[in-house]
Simulated scan of single mutants.
Amino acid sequence: MSQTASTSPASVEDLLSRRRSPAERIQHVLHGNPALSPLIVLIAALIVFGIVSEGFLRPQALSLLVQQMAVVGTLAAGQTLIILTAGVDLSIGMAMVLSSLVMAKLAFGGMPSFLALLIGIAVAVLTGLLNGFLVTKINLPPFIVTLGTFSIFTALSLLYAQGQTIAVNPNSFLLVTGRSLSIGSVSVTWGVIFMVAVFVALGFALRNSAWGRHLYATGDDADAARLAGIRTGRVLLSAYVVAGLCVGIAAWIVAGRVGGADPNAGLNYNLLSITAVVIGGTSLFGGRGSVVGTLIGALIVQTFNSGLALAGVDPNYQVLATGILVILAVSVDQWIRKVKG
């Protein structure tokens, strides 16, 4: 009597694993861990710049680096939610500027700082709500919508501030995000602490809530998610609204950093936030990525900018390096998405 050997799923997986080439194994590992590739880049960048620039890896220098990326990091956290849904927000930087101007001007005019802060954050949430409404209810492409609102928010910012920078009383509660806490020889601003809190909250929500799972499902395949009973329109709208809340917090952080608000301060933040998200391993096609990767991506952008500056490299090459990083990140994402089962 002959016995028929059965093959368990585990043994099949082992067999397939043995047949994969080293490149395919790396591809599978990176596919399952989106934050791994940016982490490798960050570690390599820190080592290289630590060798090239004396003092780059000192605790005080690293603390300053983190403080410099707090605004971009907070914006990038909100941008991650939108890119996870296969969208993009080109207006996020100018929405932050408009929000910060509202906060600063109301506080400058005598309104209690806390109330001015709440109104400024409400303005930021409304900018996200406007973008989300146009995308979900009018069915316009996110790229076109946010390109249009970028111009609208820019014009509103210039008109509201009359093209002038608004300074705030140094003792105002609005500037608390620029104040520092000393931990040994290292100083950390409250803005950095708030940025970390944003990442922790979003990371928990995306990983452990039904909303997070619905967000990933909508970004991966909106039609399939809709057939599965997910209200994709509501999920998309919520992503833009929560991103707007992140914009409001970023506006508070930038107000504390510059001591007020500048209507011309946000031109680069749109692209920097997208750059951090893409370098952090979140796919522009939606459904894949994490806020942890985005945090690493923001650190990579600031590490390259600070490291090249300390090394005495021409600022134009810093921009060149950022562009190359973006292209490489998108190329790696395309390669990872081709992973075979």
Rank of each mutant, 00 (worst) to 15 (best):
S37A: 15
L118F: 05
L106E: 07
I119W: 02
G128Q: 09
L126V: 14
Q60E: 11
A107H: 05
V48A: 11
A124V: 07
G87I: 04
I138F: 02
I40F: 04
Q67H: 13
G78T: 09
M103W: 04
I47W: 12
L46I: 12
S99Y: 06
V52Y: 03
K137P: 00
F56T: 00
G120I: 13
Q60P: 00
K105L: 11
P34F: 15
L140G: 03
L65Y: 02
H28A: 15
A70T: 14
A124F: 01
M96C: 02
P141W: 06
T127V: 09
L130D: 10
I40W: 03
M96G: 03
A77C: 08
G128M: 01
I83P: 01
E54V: 09
K137D: 10
T74Q: 01
F133G: 12
T74H: 01
S63M: 07
M69Q: 07
V71R: 03
I83A: 06
L98V: 10
I43R: 08
K137N: 11
G132R: 05
M96T: 12
A95D: 00
A77T: 11
T80D: 06
G109N: 12
L84T: 09
S63E: 09
A45S: 14
A95K: 05
V125F: 03
L62F: 02
V48L: 14
I138A: 14
P141S: 10
I40S: 08
V48C: 11
L115M: 14
S113D: 15
L90C: 00
S113E: 09
G32Y: 08
S113I: 10
I82W: 00
Q68I: 08
A76E: 07
V97F: 04
I119Q: 12
V66C: 05
M69C: 08
A124R: 06
P59A: 14
L84P: 02
G110P: 04
A95N: 06
L118V: 14
Q68N: 14
L134F: 01
V125M: 08
N33L: 10
A45E: 12
V135C: 04
V29E: 14
T136Y: 04
P112G: 11
L130F: 10
D89E: 06
S113P: 02
M94K: 13
A35G: 06
G110T: 10
A61Y: 01
G55C: 06
I47K: 13
L134K: 02
G32T: 12
A70V: 07
S63F: 04
V41T: 15
N33M: 04
Q67I: 11
